[in-house]
Nucleic acid binder design. Structure first.
Length: 579
RNA sequence: CGGGGUGUGGCGCAGUGGAAGCGCGCUCGGUUCGGGACCGAGAGGUCGUGGGUUCGAUCCCCACCACCCCGACCA
C-alpha cells in the first residue's frame, strides 16, 4: 500500500475522552473512530488488525476440529425465553420489536441459538461429538462502556461450542480447546496466564480464563512464581493456615474507648493486626430468599465479595448498612462472634485463617470494649469458609511457592457447561442403549475486538504502538528519506520486491519531511522500518530498524528484501509469494 | 442506577449580555528537507438541543440529550 493513497487519518493531539493507552493510540493512529459510547467503526488499519486476529483464531479453531458457522445477530425472544435468560439478562439485553410487535433482541452470546441448531438435527450418539464456532458481533447494553475497544456495547467475539455424549467426553473437548487457546495466544504474541475463574452468569462448572497481562487490566489475578497455579482473585485461594495447639487463656474483656478501626485497636492493645478479627455484615441474596450474615476475617485481611457469595451459596452479597446491622442488635465497630450462633436471621461465618486455635482480639459486642483470646471453635461457633482476598506473598495452594499478583485483561474464557442449556432446551440424543440424554456442552469465547486493544495495552511506548509481527497491520514500512530520484526509485524497488515475496509493506511516498514519516511510523507501530536515505544509498546500503529496538543497522540494498522477509517469518508469519 | 465533570471550526482549547478567537490540522504561494520546519495569503463555526428572561443570549435560568471519570454492574 502506498501511504499517499491510504486512509490513515492520524492525530497529533490526544483526544480528550481517551484515557487508556490503547484507546489513545487506536484513535491517534487512525485505527478506529468512536461513533457512540462503546460503539466504534474500524478504519482500514484497525480492520486489518482485527482480521489478522480473527484469522489466527479461525486457523486454530479449524485445526482443533471445530467448524465455522454464522448465527444471526438479530434474535427472536423465544430462544432466550426457553432458558429464562430473557428475564435474567435484564437491561444488558438490547431489545426491540418488529412491525408486528414481535419481540427480538440483539445477541449478547449465542448458547441458545447454537443449542437449537444442534437439537434440530442431532438425535444419536453416532452424530456426536460436534464442535462449532462463529465469529460474530455481539451486543450488550453495558452499564458502563469504557476504555475504547476494551469494553464495548458492540464487539466482535469468537464463540465456540462443543457437544458431547458424556461429561468425561466434554472434559476432553474442553482440553482440546484449552490447547487451541494456548496456540492462539502464543501466535498473537501476547503474554498471558491461564487462570481459574468464577463462572459467573453463564452457569458452568469448570472454567478458565485466558488473562493477558497488562497494568490497565480490569481483573486482578494471582499466579504462583514456582508452579503453573494462577487464579482470578475472585476464586483464588492459598494454603490453609496450620492449626496451632498452644493453650490460649480464657477470654478477657478490655476497655477500648473510641477504638473502632482494626488499626486503632491493634495499636491500642499492642497486638499485631493479624491477631485481630473484624466482622463484615452482608445482606445475602439467594435464589429465593434474602438473609443476613456476619462474616469474620482476620484484621489484616480483606474479604472478596465474589468468594463470599460462592461460599455462602448466594447469588449475590451486598455490604449491609449500619442501620440494617443495628436491627440485628449489632454494635458496629465492636462486633464479636462470642455468644453468637448461626440462626435464620443472622448466619455466622469465619474465614479459615481464623480457625487456627489461636486467640484473637474481637469486638465485645458492647460499645467501647473488645475481647482478647477469642478462639474460634472454643468461644465462638460458625461455619468455616475461605473468603479472603489472596495477594502478593501468600503461599500457593499447590506447591507452597509464592504467589504474585498481576492485572489482567480477560481475552478468552472457556467453560464446561454441562447440561445447563441442553436440558432446558430439550437438546438430547439416544445413547447406545437407546436412552435419551441431554447433550453435555462446553462453550469457549475469545474477545476478538477486545484483543486489538489488549495487544496495545501490552505493547506500546511513549511514541506509539509496537504490534506483534503476527497481527501488525503491515509488517514493514519503507520510508524514502529524500526526494532524489535514486532514493525514490530504490525505495519503490524494495517495496515492490517485498510485495512479491508476500510481505505486507507500506510505502511512505508522501511528500513529507522525514521527521513526520518517522513519527507516524512509530505511532502506527509497524514492526520493521526500512529507510532509504542519501548517505546510505551512496554506499549501497539502506537502514533497517525494528520498532521494538533502539538500534539501527545498515543493510546492503541487495540483501534488505531477504533480511526483512526472514525477520517477518521469524515473527511467526507464513509468507506466501505472489506469483 | 448513585456521585462528579464536559459539550465553542476536523482535533485540542480560550472567551464575552452587543453575537467568536488561539494552537494544530486543511487549501494556495514561497523557502526548507533525518525525528511532527518556517514565512505569507486563505477556507472553515446552527457556540449540544428545546424553552425562558432580555431591546439583544454562545454567555443568565429551566428542561432534555450526548459524552467522559469514580462507584454499582459486567466479558
Amino acid at each position: 500500500m502506498r501511504y499517499s493513497s491510504a486512509f490513515i487519518p492520524t492525530l497529533k493531539e490526544v483526544p480528550k475522552d481517551a484515557t487508556t493507552p490503547s484507546h489513545v493510540l487506536l484513535l491517534r493512529g487512525g485505527f478506529v473512530r468512536m461513533v457512540g459510547a462503546g460503539i466504534y467503526e474500524m478504519l482500514p488499519l484497525g480492520l486489518r488488525v482485527l482480521r489478522k486476529i480473527a484469522d489466527i483464531v479461525r486457523e486454530e479453531m479449524d485445526r482443533s476440529g471445530s467448524q465455522e458457522v454464522l448465527m444471526p445477530a438479530l434474535l427472536p425472544a423465544e430462544y432466550f425465553r426457553e432458558t429464562g435468560r430473557w428475564d435474567l439478562y435484564g437491561d444488558v439485553l438490547i431489545r426491540m420489536k418488529d412491525r408486528k410487535g414481535g419481540e427480538y433482541h440483539l445477541g449478547p452470546t449465542h448458547e441458545e441459538i447454537i443449542t437449537d441448531m444442534v437439537r434440530r438435527d442431532v438425535k444419536s450418539y453416532r452424530q456426536l461429538p460436534q464442535s462449532l464456532y462463529q465469529v460474530q458481533m455481539k451486543f450488550r447494553d453495558e452499564p458502563r462502556p469504557r476504555a475504547g475497544l476494551l469494553r464495548c456495547r458492540e464487539f466482535m467475539m469468537k464463540d465456540a461450542y462443543s457437544f458431547d455424549v458424556s461429561e468425561e467426553k466434554a472434559f476432553a473437548s474442553y482440553g482440546v480447546m484449552r490447547e487451541a487457546y494456548h496456540r492462539i495466544f502464543k501466535r498473537l504474541g501476547l503474554e498471558y496466564r491461564i487462570v481459574e475463574a468464577d463462572s459467573g452468569a453463564i452457569g458452568g462448572k469448570t472454567s478458565a480464563e485466558f488473562q493477558v497481562l497488562a497494568q490497565t487490566g480490569e481483573d486482578a489475578i494471582v499466579a504462583c512464581t514456582k508452579c503453573d497455579y494462577a487464579a482470578n482473585v475472585e476464586v483464588a485461594t492459598s494454603t490453609a493456615p496450620a492449626k496451632k495447639t498452644d493453650a490460649v487463656g480464657a477470654m478477657e474483656k478490655v476497655a477500648t474507648p473510641h477504638k473502632k478501626t482494626i488499626e486503632d485497636v491493634a495499636t491500642f492493645l499492642s497486638v499485631p493486626q493479624s491477631q485481630t478479627m473484624k466482622a463484615l455484615f452482608f445482606r445475602v441474596i439467594r435464589k429465593d430468599s434474602v438473609s443476613n450474615a456476619l462474616v469474620f476475617v482476620r484484621g489484616d485481611h480483606e474479604a472478596h465479595e465474589v468468594k463470599v457469595a460462592n461460599a455462602l451459596g448466594a447469588r449475590e452479597v451486598v455490604m449491609g448498612t449500619a442501620d440494617e446491622a443495628a436491627k440485628h442488635g449489632i454494635v458496629t465497630g465492636y462486633i464479636g462472634p462470642q455468644g453468637r450462633a448461626s440462626s435464620k436471621d443472622l448466619e455466622v461465618y469465619f474465614d479459615r485463617s481464623l480457625d487456627t486455635g489461636e486467640g484473637f482480639v474481637a469486638g465485645a459486642n458492647e460499645e467501647g470494649f473488645h475481647t482478647k483470646n477469642v478462639v474460634v471453635g472454643r468461644d465462638a461457633s460458625g461455619t468455616i469458609v475461605d473468603v479472603r482476598t489472596v495477594g502478593d506473598g501468600d503461599a500457593c495452594p499447590n506447591c507452597m511457592g509464592e504467589l504474585k499478583s498481576y492485572r489482567g485483561i480477560e481475552g478468552g474464557h472457556i467453560f464446561v457447561l454441562g447440561t445447563h442449556y441442553s436440558a432446558k432446551m430439550g437438546c438430547t440424543f439416544l445413547d447406545e442403549e437407546g436412552n435419551s440424554k441431554p447433550i453435555v456442552m462446553g462453550c469457549y469465547g475469545i474477545g476478538v475486538s477486545r484483543l486489538v486493544a489488549t495487544a496495545i495495552e501490552q505493547n506500546h511506548d511513549a511514541d506509539g504502538i509496537r504490534w506483534p509481527m503476527t497481527i501488525a497491520p503491515y509488517q514493514v514500512i519503507v520510508v524514502p528519506a529524500g526526494k532524489e530520484d535514486e532514493i525514490q526509485a530504490a525505495a519503490l524497488d524494495v517495496y515492490t520486491k517485498l510485495g512479491a515475496l508476500g510481505v505486507e509493506a507500506l510505502l511512505d511516498d508522501r511528500d513529507e519531511r522525514p521527521g513526520v514519516k518517522f513519527k507516524d511510523a512509530d505511532l502506527l507501530g509497524i514492526p520493521l522500518r526500512v529507510v532509504v536515505g542519501k548517505k546510505g544509498l551512496a554506499e549501497g546500503k539502506v537502514e533497517l530498524k525494528a520498532r521494538k529496538d533502539k538500534d539501527v543497522s545498515m543493510v546492503p540494498v541487495g540483501e534488505i528484501v531477504d533480511k526483512v522477509a526472514s525477520l517477518v517469518r521469524e515473527g511467526g508469519v507464513r509468507l506466501i509469494p505472489k506469483s
